[in-house]
Design a protein around this nucleic acid. Sequence first.
DNA 1: AATGAATGAGCGTTCATTCAT
DNA 2: CATGAATGAACGCTCATTCAT
Lengths: 199, 199, 199, 199
Amino acid sequence: MPAKMKSRPRTKPPEERRNELMNAARRLFLEQGVGPTTIEQITSRADVAKGTFYLYFSSKEDVLAALADRYGDDLLVSIKAAIAQRANDDWRGKLAAWATATISAYLDSIGLHDILFYGSRPHTREGLVDNVIIDHLYELLQAGVDVGAWSLDDARFTAVFLFNGLHGVVDDAHTREKRINRARLAHRLERLCFRAVGI
Amino acid sequence: MPAKMKSRPRTKPPEERRNELMNAARRLFLEQGVGPTTIEQITSRADVAKGTFYLYFSSKEDVLAALADRYGDDLLVSIKAAIAQRANDDWRGKLAAWATATISAYLDSIGLHDILFYGSRPHTREGLVDNVIIDHLYELLQAGVDVGAWSLDDARFTAVFLFNGLHGVVDDAHTREKRINRARLAHRLERLCFRAVGI
Amino acid sequence: MPAKMKSRPRTKPPEERRNELMNAARRLFLEQGVGPTTIEQITSRADVAKGTFYLYFSSKEDVLAALADRYGDDLLVSIKAAIAQRANDDWRGKLAAWATATISAYLDSIGLHDILFYGSRPHTREGLVDNVIIDHLYELLQAGVDVGAWSLDDARFTAVFLFNGLHGVVDDAHTREKRINRARLAHRLERLCFRAVGI
Amino acid sequence: MPAKMKSRPRTKPPEERRNELMNAARRLFLEQGVGPTTIEQITSRADVAKGTFYLYFSSKEDVLAALADRYGDDLLVSIKAAIAQRANDDWRGKLAAWATATISAYLDSIGLHDILFYGSRPHTREGLVDNVIIDHLYELLQAGVDVGAWSLDDARFTAVFLFNGLHGVVDDAHTREKRINRARLAHRLERLCFRAVGI
DNA sequence: AATGAATGAGCGTTCATTCAT
DNA sequence: CATGAATGAACGCTCATTCAT
C-alpha cells in the first residue's frame, strides 16, 4: 500500500502539543529574549502552524506565565528535597543545604529565570516565583530563630536579602566566568549565610 | 511685516535639547515602561518634532544608554560623597555610610533603576551601572581587608552579594510598603553588612 | 462494557440537523450581524462540532441563502392566504388585505429581512425574496387594472414603489417606536395604497 | 543636472491626500464592496504607503463615514437647489421638482448610496443621510398641508413612504435596465407623488 | 537646526476550511 | 455521520526611521 509520506499524525495528546510549544518558546526566549521572539518563530520551531499556538495559549504573555509556573514549581521542589535530607535539628546543615541547593538550581536556570521574571513589563513582584522561594526561606529562618538556632533582626528582611544576594552572585558568575566553580560558589555562599544569621 | 505669532526660538543649545529629550523619555519610561513608549511620545512631550529626536539620539536604545550613564554617574558621586564624610580610619563608619547612602540613593530611584537595567534586552551585565557601584564597593571592602579592618573570603564576591542583597530589600520595600521607614531599613542593612564582613 | 456516559444519540435525521443549524445561524445573525458571526459560534450553539457544519452547508453564504429561501416562501404563503379570504371581486379588499398582511409579516421579521437581504455583498437584487413578493403584488395590481378596478401607469413600477414604501415605513417604525401601533400603521398604508392606484 | 527620477513631491496638501484616499476607497467599495476591500488596496490605488492611510483615517469605518458625510451634503444641496427654482406658491411644482431632482441624484449615485448606507453593520437609521433627505421632504409636505396645497394623514409617514418608494424604483431600474429612461421614471414618480398627497 | 509627512516591514490575531480518526 | 485539532492565508494596525523642505 502506498505510504502517504506527509502523514504525520495530525493530532497529538494536547498535553504534549502544549509542552512542545512551551519548549520551543523557552528556547527562543533564551536565545533572543522575549520581545524579539515572534509567535511565528515559536510555532515554526514547534513544527506546527501559526494558528495552533492560539489553540493552547492566548498570547505570548500567556506562554510566559505557563513557563513561569512550571519553573517555580520545579525550583521549590528541588530546594525542599535538599533540605529534607538533613537531620531535623541540624539547623546549620539545613541552611547550608538551602544555599547549596538554591545556588545549584539557579545556576542551571539563571538565564531562564531572568527572562521569565525580569522581562515582563509591570514589575509586579506579586506572584513572582521569587516570592515563593523567599517565603520558604523566611519560614526556615524564622523556625531557626524560634528554636534558638541563630539570631537575626527580622526574618523576612534577611530572607529577602540573602535570596537577592544569592541571585546576584549567581548572575555575576554566570556573566563573568566561563566554567563556574560550583563548589567554591556554594562554599562562599554558605559562609555568608552563616554570618548573616550570626553563626 | 506679518509677524509669525507662534515663533518660539527654533533652536536651542544642543545640550539643552538633548536634556529635554532625555527627561521626557525618563518620565515616559517611568510611567509606562520602555517598550510601550514611542519616539513620538517622547518628542511630543519634549515639544519638538519627531525628526529632531534623531538629531540627538540614534534610537530608543540610545536614550536608554544615555539615561543609564547619567544615572550611574550621579549615583556614584553621592555614595562617594557620603563616605568621604567619615574619618579616614573609621572603616566601620565608612561601611555604614556606604549602606545608608546607597539605600537612600536607590530608594529615590528604584523605579528608574529597574527600568534602565532590567528592561534592556540581552541581559548583558556588561557595562551596567551596577558594576560601577559594585566595583567601588569592592575597593572599599578590599581596602578594609588590607588594613585589617575586617575579614572576608573574597571581596568581589562579597561586594556582589551585598549590593544585590541591598537592591533586593529596597525593591521589596518599594513593592510592599506604602510609606517606607528609611531609618529602619538603613539600620538593618548596616547590621547585615557588618555581619557579612565579620564585625 | 464501560458505558460512555455522555452518549447522546450521535446522529439525527438530516433534515433536523440542518434546521437546527439554520436556527442557530438565524439567532446569531440577528444578535450580532452576519459578518461577526463565525462558523464556530453557529455550530457551538447548535451543539455540534465545527466540521458538521460543512456536512450541511458549504459556507456562511450558503446558510444565508437557505435562510432567505425559507423566509421568502413563508412570507408569500401568509400574504396569499390573507388575500384569499376576500371575495373574488372585492379588489379594494384584496389590496387592503395585501397591505395589512404584508405589514404584519414584515413587522414580525424586519430584523431578519434586513440582515438577509442587505448584508450580502454585491447587492444583486437578482433572486431576492423581495422580487417574489413584488412579482406577486404586480400580478395583483395588473389584474385589478385588467378588470377596471383601478388605474395606474405601470403595474410593475407601482408594485416596486408600494413594496419599498411599505418596507420603509416598517423599518422606520421599527427603529423609532418602542411599541408599534400596528393598526394605525396598516390603516395609513391602506390609504396610501388606495391613493396610489387612484381609488 | 541629473534629474532624480523617483522624486515625486513627497508631501501634498493634506486636503488633497485625504481626497485621493477617499476617492480610491470609493472606487474600490463600488467595485467589490466594503468588506472585501483592504486598506492595502486603498493605499496602493491612491499610490501611497499603507501607513499613510492611518495618517488621515483611523479605520475603514472612518473613511466610510467621511464618504457618507460628503455624500449627504452634496445630495441635499442639489435637491434644495432644484426646489428653489420654483415659484414660492407653486406647490405642485415643488413636489415635482423634489421627485425629479431626487431621482436624478440617486440615479447618479445609487451604488455608492447602497454601499454607504446598507453595508455598515448596526443598522442604526440614526444619523443616516436618508434621514436628512426624509426630514427635508417631511417639511415640504407639512408646509403644503399647512397652506392647503394638499392633504394627507401624516406628513412624516408619507415622507418615509415616498422616499423609500423612490429609492426602490431607482434601485430596481438600476438593477434591471441597461439604459435608464430618466424622463419616464421621473414622470411616473411625479404622478405617484401627486396621488399620494391627493392631487 | 528643525520639521513632520511619508514609508513599509513586521507583528499579533482571526477564522473558514480540511481531514484523519 | 460526526468530530475537532490543525492549518495558513489574510488583515488591520503600529511605529521606528527617513528625507525633502
